[in-house]
Design a protein around this nucleic acid. Sequence first.
DNA 1: TATGAATGAGTATTCATTCAT
DNA 2: AATGAATGAATACTCATTCAT
Lengths: 199, 199, 199, 199
Amino acid sequence: MRTVGSNGEATEKMLRVVGVRLIAKYGYEAVSLRMLAKEVGIQAGSLYNYINNKQEFLFDLLQSIITDLFDDMDARMSGVEDPLERLKVFVAVHIEFHTRRKDEVFIGNMELRSLSDEHRKIIVGMRNRYEQLLGDIIQAGLDTGQFHVRDGHVAKLAILAMLTGVSHWYKPSGRLRIGALIDEYTEFAMAILQADTPS
Amino acid sequence: MRTVGSNGEATEKMLRVVGVRLIAKYGYEAVSLRMLAKEVGIQAGSLYNYINNKQEFLFDLLQSIITDLFDDMDARMSGVEDPLERLKVFVAVHIEFHTRRKDEVFIGNMELRSLSDEHRKIIVGMRNRYEQLLGDIIQAGLDTGQFHVRDGHVAKLAILAMLTGVSHWYKPSGRLRIGALIDEYTEFAMAILQADTPS
Amino acid sequence: MRTVGSNGEATEKMLRVVGVRLIAKYGYEAVSLRMLAKEVGIQAGSLYNYINNKQEFLFDLLQSIITDLFDDMDARMSGVEDPLERLKVFVAVHIEFHTRRKDEVFIGNMELRSLSDEHRKIIVGMRNRYEQLLGDIIQAGLDTGQFHVRDGHVAKLAILAMLTGVSHWYKPSGRLRIGALIDEYTEFAMAILQADTPS
Amino acid sequence: MRTVGSNGEATEKMLRVVGVRLIAKYGYEAVSLRMLAKEVGIQAGSLYNYINNKQEFLFDLLQSIITDLFDDMDARMSGVEDPLERLKVFVAVHIEFHTRRKDEVFIGNMELRSLSDEHRKIIVGMRNRYEQLLGDIIQAGLDTGQFHVRDGHVAKLAILAMLTGVSHWYKPSGRLRIGALIDEYTEFAMAILQADTPS
DNA sequence: TATGAATGAGTATTCATTCAT
DNA sequence: AATGAATGAATACTCATTCAT
């Protein structure tokens, strides 16, 4: 029976937005479905019209986040071959995503612990594949002689931590434009890799 | 009601160690006092001979961690004046602490959300003062002309995220010695800051 | 997880009745929500569909009791002007209420200690206003010369304690009809006040 | 081993005084042995050098209170034969005790519910014997024709409730001297009983 | 699609009590 | 006579989840 005021699609979207916001703020474990339902404007029981259970809800969120990131990266990377150019694209896309969708990537990094073992395996696998994109770029640059860093593996980890860190402090209202940020971080990444700058 | 085996000091130490390990693995919210007590080998109620409540337990852990980090840094930094030398000390101490006491700094970064507002204010204040140590080093290097980075503030954030990241992946059994890690990260930090290397 | 038999209104009424009975018998502190829930026929957690917490449950009970008493008194007192007549009404209504709803007034007198400071302030305020009804009647009778007691304030306290005492021993199955009780207590009250009896 | 600072007798007295005060204020169930111990200045476990358990502690308190009341009454009543004189003594002793030891009689009336069945039987038996003292006085006065109340039983209950009520509101710092109070209440009791006043 | 009443297991915390020292 | 570490059972309360309506 269709209750007066029922409104499936809007509710579903809101659920996702509210879920991300609350989990980013309080953490998955600290967010109760009652709290979530209240913010969405429905009763707790009604959430089950949209989710199977709390754990799958988290998994779906995290999966769609990393999928989006991957897709963004893929689209922008296609056709770019030169390692240095690919590095610049990587930094740009990563920073853009990590500032524009900061809450989402934040929970993507924080809530892996809250996933069930099976779910975590899947998400970590996706994340590893994503991070390997940068690993491959670095290796390619070392092969071509454009990069000169000693330990490409550590460099990859260092650059990823450095770039991802923006999601911890970035505020849209802040001093820095995203473009300027990308320029800075591109220079940092190139410096770490001791990249040759084309004359 | 056997009280044989009462052993306050040992229990207290164990509580701290077990607490850090469990919180690092599952997160503060997901760790129940029952679980904690079981690992320590006492009844849940007996925890209250050592803690006032779960929240204060977390706060005390986090506070002592950052205090130790600060004290370590202070001791090693004393007498060092040159900005470049100070930068090297900062990187070395930070990496050492973040590898040797990796679980502790991990929860120090992850569990700020789980603190009460008042407790969080205190811990964040301490963390800000700690991070400003690096900010001051960078500014001093810019003033002396030893560093040439465009935006010292962003550089500080980038370096801190990069360095702190080791606590997310470091394994004592891994390929890399701490000494080698420090060397790598020192180079990275200097590269980011475009530090002059003394001839 | 059977929800067959969900029946909000009936449960709510029963909760109130059972609550009054248990608190009157064992005292608020000694009554656990488990016990209460068991008597009502639901699980302890389900109580929270009806109450916010144990303390508010008590407050709501006490508040509705004194409100009912006040309303009863108000209704029966309206239109009666003569102090002696008002005294008789007061005694009659008070005794009727304190016999017919003896458990309720009993907890109303016994459980003030169990209220939070804020709740107690409210209930005591209501009780004081109620008791002042008698104080005003006595003062009026003294003013008209119908009563001759030396200290009206002490007389008020004495009469109230005397009347309220019935809730400590009254049994519906006992020897005395409520009507006879009222007659006795009316005489006692008049005697205490040294009221002139109209010839 | 005699611990430094151990001080048995003083502790025992203090325990009684503190116990009465706390139970009067918060109620037996709401007073924890930890709270009690803290006020006395010892650890909770040390209480068991003085009490067998919490329930017996309450019983001992209540028993000694009613015993003291009984003894006071007995001593002052001895040698008095005339019903009216005995009534006056009863009122005087009762009021004196209920004002001077107000906290004690307060818990004596409030905490019967908190006694075990066996303990309660004993205390209620003692209280009934005490109250029967007044019942006997009234009956004697009716027999001699000095009192004229219709229902001696209800009169007994009414007078007892009235007299005992002082323990609910009496404050030593208040307006009324105990002597004046006794005079008032003696008049009230005589009025209730319609006692002949000797010319 | 939504409600609201319900479950049963869980949570942090408190408590009376014990006992080796 | 006192401590302090411990127990085991209890307490108020929360939670994810179910399901008849």
